[in-house]
Nucleic acid binder design. Structure first.
Length: 574
RNA sequence: CGGGGUGUAGCGCAGCCAGGUAGCGCACCUGAAUGGGGUUCAGGUGGUCGACGGUUCGAAUCCGUCCACCCCGACCA
């Protein structure tokens, strides 16, 4: 490709609102164009990189036994109502009516469609296992699209669905995908960390995410400094300790005028926060819920939401709390009636806690569970934080951030039961198919690759996903033979099978070098009067500072060598 | 949805407070010189000033309503 003919132009200045690195660089390089909030056009260079990522993914999916198919974006809403997931996705689902007022939606994912499809063809245990996938456009009406391609409303996704006879089969499929995913990220030049995750609106049991570690990533990851434990903070757990072993003492009221926060209370009564019970009120689908947790911990709202199985959860406001007859600052599970109470398991082993008294300016000492208060549910609803203990080994937990570039789920049978995907086992008995699903956002992977591989000058594409392999950069000057040599070299390299982008513009060397750095093609070949004096060209890797002179006769061999090296340099897993 | 911000040429911005012929830089077109890290000079093209309504002799500018986009949060794969 000749840059003079390439659609898309590099910019010197970029929109002020872009402040994420990948967003800025992709805009500046003229690779993407924003159409509306969270909706982008991909220009030819970006599309070539996307296609390369897709092909790597396709390659790995096929190698793992997946079969590619294509399902529709437009789906009957009825299908979603059957599984109830129209509610789970809520406003994230793009819904529309056709001319006869039939309700349709734009698929945010394809479990419903694929399960219904699979149910038509899976009849016997002999038809399983089955792995089906597609690479296709998804629509999600995100509350807040942001950061360029990192969170958008329309995007290309590879989604694979596994169908197995039982949990054991699912585990095998799940592991197969896990391995395939690790190979995909490695081949894309992206080290990705495998972490435990919450399954969110997709539903199901086990779920893991692949994270590219990045300070600016929007997900928080909690991991152990000692063992392999790593989890999204939405899912992460921590060891909470065993509690005192003291004998329970009788309940005692203490006056605590004006003391309403945990730290005030801790100072006032000279007790540490982990001996205080904290009361937090939430509204879950409109109903008041009381979350009870140890004073040194915070409530993880994702966990709470999962336990309550509610669609909407938010901190109750003052009005909602007052209506329930509770006194903020002195609230307590003791003596509380008619409010659903969820107790964190941190409170269970503890003894002689301080808690609110549900009357003004008063707290209670020596509160014990279950002697003094009950619960509707006890569960882990605590947010794990850096500095706490690993739930697996007791080591110190640390926190970092990451970009989610893949998510895999063990779905189980809830969808196959609802949508009628059953198979006959060897005894002829119908059993629900056991499902898993596995997704990678292609555009986000591209953006993450840019986030991970760039410098102040621009993008540094990993070779396997670079739009082109070679950036041919002739520094034109009349009557020097540079133009002729470059043209000849260009056609030779192209016919030899190299992917070459040639900067054939009449621009100054500075402009060309800056654009070359911005576009980030891995290997730059400069042809100039200076190099031709030695019958050579200059070869430079985008990732390195130094360049070397290579005789014209040896250029193809040198390029093959560099490309082989770049294609096989798989980064180690984090 | 709550808070904050921005809409003037493809991009970056000034002009608005104090109403009176819409400007600058980049990009783009023409010409000349230059030629290894955004080179210089000269001449050009391009704008319903986000939309609608109001005030006024006159609105980019004042007032109102709406819309779009961005950031933080809520929320969300």
């Amino acid at each position: 490709m000749r840059i003079s003919r390439l659609f898309g132009r590099t910019q010197r200045e970029i929109p002020a609102e872009a402040d994420t690195v990948s967003h800025r660089l992709l805009l500046k390089a003229g690779m993407i164009y924003q159409v509306a909030s969270g909706i982008y056009s991909y220009l030819p260079l970006a599309l070539r990189a996307l296609r390369k990522i897709e092909n790597i993914i396709r390659d790995e999916m096929d190698a793992a036994g997946g079969q590619e198919l294509m399902m529709p974006v437009l789906q009957p809403l009825e299908l979603w109502q059957q599984t109830g997931r129209d509610q789970a996705f809520g406003e994230g689902l793009f819904v529309l009516n056709d001319r006869r007022d039939r309700r349709l939606c734009l698929g945010p994912t394809h479990e419903e469609v694929v399960t219904r499809l699979a149910s038509q063809y899976i009849k016997s245990y002999r038809d399983l296992p089955l792995l089906l996938y597609q690479i296709q456009t998804k629509f999600r009406d995100e509350p807040r699209p942001r950061a360029g391609l990192l969170r958008v409303r329309e995007f290309t996704m590879k989604d694979l669905y596994s169908f197995d006879i039982d949990e054991k089969g699912l585990d095998l499929s799940y592991n197969k995908m896990l391995k395939a995913y690790q190979r995909i990220y490695a081949r894309c030049g992206l080290p990705a960390l495998f972490v435990e995750a919450d399954s969110g609106a997709i539903g199901g049991k086990d779920s893991h995410e692949f994270m590219v570690i990045m300070d600016t990533g929007e997900d928080e990851i909690i991991y152990c400094s000692h063992c392999q434990y790593a989890a999204n903070s939405e899912k992460a757990c921590c060891a909470k300790g065993k509690g005192g072993g003291e004998a329970p003492l009788p309940l005692e009221e203490v006056a605590t005028p004006g003391v309403t926060t945990i730290s005030d209370l801790s100072d006032f009564l000279k007790v540490s926060p982990d001996h205080i019970i904290k009361a937090v009120f939430y509204a879950a689908d409109g109903d008041l819920v009381f979350a009870v947790i140890r004073g040194d911990l915070e409530v993880n709202e994702v966990k709470l939401k999962n336990i309550l199985k509610c669609v909407e959860l938010h901190l109750a406001d003052e009005e909602e709390i007052r209506r329930a007859g509770v006194i903020a600052g002195f609230a307590s599970p003791v003596g509380l009636l008619n409010i659903k109470t969820v107790v964190d398991d941190s409170v269970i082993p503890g003894v002689n806690f301080v808690a609110g008294a549900n009357s003004p300016e008063t707290h209670l000492k020596n509160v014990n569970y279950p002697r003094d208060f009950g619960s509707d549910v006890t569960a882990d609803i605590a947010r794990a934080c850096a500095g706490e203990q690993c739930p697996k080994c007791g080591g110190k937990l640390l926190a970092t951030h990451g970009i989610e570039v893949g998510h895999i789920f063990k779905l189980g049978t809830f969808l196959s039961k609802k949508l009628g995907a059953f198979y006959a086992d060897p005894d002829g008995i119908d059993r629900p198919v056991v499902m898993g699903c596995y997704g990678i956002g292609i555009g986000r992977l591209l953006a993450a690759a840019v986030e991970q591989n760039h410098d102040d000058q621009g993008i540094i594409w990993p070779l396997p996903i670079a739009p082109y392999q070679v950036h041919l950069c002739p520094l034109y000057r009349e009557n020097t033979g540079v133009a002729e040599t470059a043209e000849k070299l260009y056609s030779e390299l192209v016919s030899a099978g190299f992917e070459v982008l040639m900067d054939d513009r009449q621009e100054s060397p500075g402009v060309k070098f800056n654009d070359a750095d911005l576009l980030g093609i891995p290997i730059r070949v400069t042809v100039s009067q200076r190099t031709l004096k030695q019958d050579s060209v200059e070869v430079k890797k985008r990732s390195e500072k130094e360049s070397q002179l290579v005789p014209l006769a040896e250029i193809a061999g040198k390029l093959w060598e560099l490309i082989d090296e770049g294609m096989s340099a798989l980064p180690n897993q984090v």
